[in-house]
Design a protein around this nucleic acid. Structure first.
Lengths: 166, 166
DNA sequence: TTTGATGCAAAACGTTTGCACGGCA
DNA sequence: TGCCGTGCAAACGTTTTGCATCAAA
């Protein structure tokens, strides 16, 4: 797929989407909201509130954590942000691109998070839900393991640049 | 399967297993450890530290939360307890019976948690891990939805004894 | 001008830990 | 007796909230 180009283009339409959402809800379009939303739409991977706050520090006039949390709620409400629980004490977030649904595989060595798509699993999930008399609305599938390549090298360089967290 | 009978029998062997584990580790066998372990082995479903603490209140001499947390760690260490993240801020636990591995389906109406077994999914997971160059060590699959039966009845009675979460 | 948004600090929440006391081995 | 386990309260890390101030509409 065409990478950089379509990414840039999407950020504008994502911001427009978000603005429309705010208007529709009778909410105000503020600098903070646009700034945080843009930052999030530019993220290429999974992030935490902590890492987001860090990456926003250089912006003129820091944005408070309280505000970041509140904006994250809004973006989840607008359907543009997805929340993940990777078994830690803090939440991870991911810009929900309109692309295909995916699940995650997490390396227990270095906390690297990879994505994969498994249409077969999705189908079976539907069947399972049906069998159990549930109407399926969402799911969370996380695989945990160790990257083979890292194993070969002994351990991962990222393992030691540890933030203390994942 | 034969229900009540085998359950009772298992609790004794589970307690023996736990005692042996403690001895092997050079740890002491205390009243609190036996009491909490027994309570957990008697649980038929998923529970939280909160619900566990509640159900232990009537025992002579309450057991402190700190101790409960510490005993839970031990039971996870002995392989007799499994920790789950169901997307809430608190952890759920489940006595890991030696029975077949299962995954969970959670009702967003009433927080009911059902279990299911899907060997096909397990197989695909192995394949996915292989394709991504991971050695799979564990996984978490949670389906979220609404029980059909509850839908038919309008809503679930349990829905209103809400804890405010989910 | 009006009302909602922000920043700050404090609270909330589940969980962990330091420490003095108590009980198993 | 020695040493580990316990209970208490305080600490912790993440997230939420009350409130006075600020800015979008």
């Amino acid at each position: 797929m065409p990478e950089k180009e379509s990414l840039k283009r999407n950020i504008h339409s994502e911001l427009a989407l978000f603005s429309n959402y705010l208007k529709r809800q009778g909410l105000k379009i503020t600098n903070q909201r646009l700034l945080v939303a843009e930052k999030i739409f530019n993220e290429t991977s999974h992030f935490t509130v902590d890492s987001l706050a860090d990456s926003l520090k250089d912006r003129k006039g820091e944005i408070s954590r309280a505000t970041i949390y509140r904006i994250i709620s809004l973006l989840i409400g607008s359907g543009q942000l997805t929340e993940h629980n990777f078994g830690e004490n803090m939440k991870y977030y991911e810009h929900s691109h309109s692309s295909e649904h995916h699940d995650h595989i997490v390396c227990l060595d270095c906390r690297r998070i990879d994505e994969f798509v498994a249409p077969n699993i999705e189908k079976i999930q539907e069947k399972v839900a049906e069998e159990n008399n549930y109407i399926l609305t969402e799911h969370s599938l996380i695989l945990y393991g160790n990257c083979k390549l890292l194993k070969e090298k002994g351990s991962c360089p990222r393992k030691n640049q540890d933030t203390g967290k994942f």
